[in-house]
């Protein structure tokens, strides 16, 4: 199988800092690879290597079949880059920014203008097309930046934290654009600190921490693999919580955690649920709430890194989509 992005053993050091300590990545053509990690994980460094801006100290990488070091020029012809910080020429208008890139990519003047108009319209910047980019808001700059990365119709698009600083409306619009591009068979590598973003957009996720990939898989696989399932039980009578905890520990073999009036435990084998239900029934404990669900990426991240992911606290909780049959008593 050929990959649109393939990296093996990427290492990058900055003086004492090891930004990347041997990173392997791969993305199949026409899919979204989410690079998920907290601040300083090495996401930007990995992107900069893949877009030929930085040479790895060790390891190799191919984009669109071209080696990013030895065939950098050909690789560049395949890629589009939207960096972590909007890279637009503020002294040019939005249209001029895009025309410049079109011209650099070999479009004729009329073609470059037409392409600029088309992209500005697509990104809701048509009205601001003739204004200097320095008068743009942060969100408008980011959209212009994204438009700039699409002028050359790249086969592989790199988006470094593309939704940071966007309002929810713009964020949704960007997600839609990513989906459209993928439908056109573009491969997208997207870095993010937001679990829900990776969950929604990515076909595959690589979790990066301290310059290493600590887990890979589809969002579903990741959720199943680490911690697997989560069992939550709330007794109707709160004073019987201790009893519930005891039962769960006995059956599962690990200590459940307390979350308000809720006993929460990671579960690998769903068969424990009927066992617990039966024991509780025997003891006459009525569960007001009992659910088995796949762990959220949040919990996956916590399990993998021992830390909560950035933004996890501020992001509103998503309603669980993966709730299994409630096994109510």
């Amino acid at each position: 199988m050929s990959y649109a992005i393939q990296a093996e053993g990427l290492v990058k050091r900055f003086k004492e800092t090891t930004a990347l300590g041997g990173v392997d990545l791969s993305a199949r053509p026409g899919t979204v690879l989410g690079l998920l990690g907290p601040n300083g994980a090495g996401k930007t460094t990995a992107v900069r290597i893949l877009v030929t801006l930085l040479r790895p100290d060790a390891g190799r990488a191919e984009v669109g079949g071209y080696d990013v070091v030895r065939q950098a020029h050909q690789a560049r012809a395949m890629i589009g880059l939207t960096g972590q910080y909007a890279a637009v020429d503020e002294t040019l208008t939005g249209a001029e920014n895009l025309v410049m890139i079109g011209r650099l990519l070999g479009l004729s003047r009329p073609d470059a203008r037409a392409r600029a108009r088309e992209l500005l319209a697509r990104f809701g910047l048509a009205d601001a097309a003739e204004r200097a980019a320095k008068t743009y808001s942060g969100g408008m700059r980011r959209r212009l930046d994204l438009a700039a990365s699409l002028v050359g119709r790249p086969r592989v698009l790199f988006l470094d934290e593309p939704t940071t600083g966007l309002d929810p409306h713009s964020r949704n619009a960007l997600w839609d654009i990513v989906r459209e591009l993928v439908a056109e068979d573009v491969t997208v590598l997207l870095t993010t600190q937001y679990l829900d973003e990776a969950d929604r957009l990515a076909d595959d996720i690589a979790v990066v921490d301290h310059g290493r990939v600590i887990a890979t898989g589809t969002p579903a696989e990741l959720k199943t693999r680490t911690g697997g399932l989560v069992l939550e039980v709330r007794p109707a009578e709160p004073e019987r919580l201790d009893l519930v905890l005891d039962v769960m520990r006995e059956v599962i073999g690990a200590r459940p955690e307390l979350d308000g009036g809720l006993a929460v435990a990671g579960v690998n084998d769903p068969a424990v649920v009927p066992a617990i239900v039966r024991r509780l029934d025997d003891l006459g404990v009525v569960a007001a709430e009992l659910s088995l669900r796949r762990s959220s990426l949040d919990e996956v991240f916590l399990a993998l890194t021992g830390r909560r992911a950035a933004g996890a606290e501020t992001e509103p909780e998503e309603p669980e989509e993966t709730e299994l049959e409630g096994a109510g008593v």
């Binding site: 560049r76 880059l81 650099l104 990519l105």
Partner: peptide, 10 residues
């Protein structure tokens, strides 16, 4: 970052 953008072009 304009310099990076330009350097990422073919």
């Amino acid at each position: 970052g304009v310099f990076d953008r330009l350097r990422s072009l073919p």
